[in-house]
């Protein structure tokens, strides 16, 4: 088939899932607004702690971060996390547990893509309702704090691109985790553990630059800094051109890696799945 035609067919098949995702997100918009307010509260607590740290240390710059940088870091990290975090693990797991996965498997659509396109719908609404106003707020803060306009549209587009990579990485990794539902009942508790650890190792709690030396080297090697730290550092302009290219390539590598792993797990799991009832 002609590639253009194939793409069109693909989008025709899966865009309805995105539409459904947007509609579901509209219904639950008060929920994710509340979650976001929760993470803003967390940002504020962290802001005051860092303020006290900078105050106590008496240094204007720590590990290349000024207090203003740290403020931008906190809010952009919360935002990036919110947009790139995937519920794939929970969605896949729940369907496996209640048997609905069977309904999905008998339809002539890709298992992964249906989940992916539905969640993209959610993310689009989050993008409009939360991302855009908060980024404008952060830019206004930057304008007043740094004295002058520092918004770079090219860098911003690279940030968006890197964030998309982070999301895909997060999505495929979470799908892999979702298959744990075959072994675990308490998926909820498992997800809390997983996301807690991921938040730490992805540099969302403490900037990786602030970690003790040994830990920092380990975390830079692990894939998880691709999840959050990379796009945030690009947004903040902390990476040079060459480093951005390298980081994006690493991100792409992990996306492909986890995509392949999740396909492998799906193929193996389907051979063993047995669904009761209907």
């Amino acid at each position: 088939m002609h590639p253009l035609k194939a793409t069109k067919k693909y989008l025709n098949t899966y865009l309805p899932f995105t539409r459904a995702g947007i509609q579901a997100a509209m219904v639950y918009r008060s929920n994710f607004l509340a979650w976001f307010v929760g993470s803003i509260v967390y940002c504020l607590v962290m802001y005051y702690i860092w303020l006290a740290v900078y105050h106590a240390s008496g240094e204007g710059v720590m590990n290349g971060f000024t207090m203003n940088d740290m403020t931008v870091f906190l809010f952009i990290t919360a935002l990036t996390n919110f947009l790139t975090d995937s519920d794939g693990s929970y969605d896949v797991g729940e369907e496996i547990k209640d048997g609905n996965v069977a309904m999905r498997l008998i339809k002539p659509v890709s298992f992964h893509s249906t989940f992916l396109f539905t969640e993209v719908g959610w993310k689009l609404l989050v993008f409009g309702m939360i991302f855009t106003p908060v980024v404008i707020g952060v830019e206004i803060f930057k304008y007043t704090a740094y004295g002058g306009l520092s918004f770079d549209i090219g860098m911003f587009l690279l940030y968006l691109f890197s964030m998309m990579m982070s999301y895909l990485f997060s999505f495929y990794m979470n799908v892999c985790f979702g298959f744990m539902a075959f072994f675990l009942k308490n998926l909820w508790g498992f997800n809390i553990i997983k996301s807690g650890i991921l938040r730490f190792v992805s540099g969302a709690v403490v900037p990786i630059a602030f970690m003790p030396d040994g830990l920092r080297q380990v975390l830079e090697w692990l894939p998880f800094s691709s999840l959050c730290y990379t796009p945030v550092m690009i947004y903040m302009g902390k990476y040079s051109g060459g480093e951005i290219a390298l980081r994006l390539a690493i991100q792409l590598g992990w996306v492909i890696g986890f995509y392949l792993i999740s396909r492998l797990i799906l193929a193996t799991a389907l051979r063993h799945v047995s669904v009761q009832g209907g």
């Binding site: 909820w188 498992f190 809390i192």
Partner: peptide, 26 residues
């Protein structure tokens, strides 16, 4: 697993505190 979930959440906050107190006395 459930108890561990809430434990991990707290331990991460403690790790954060430990890291910043590597920089400052109080």
């Amino acid at each position: 697993i459930g108890a561990l979930g809430f434990l991990v959440e707290q331990v991460i906050n403690i790790a954060f505190l430990t890291i910043i107190f590597g920089r400052v006395e109080s």
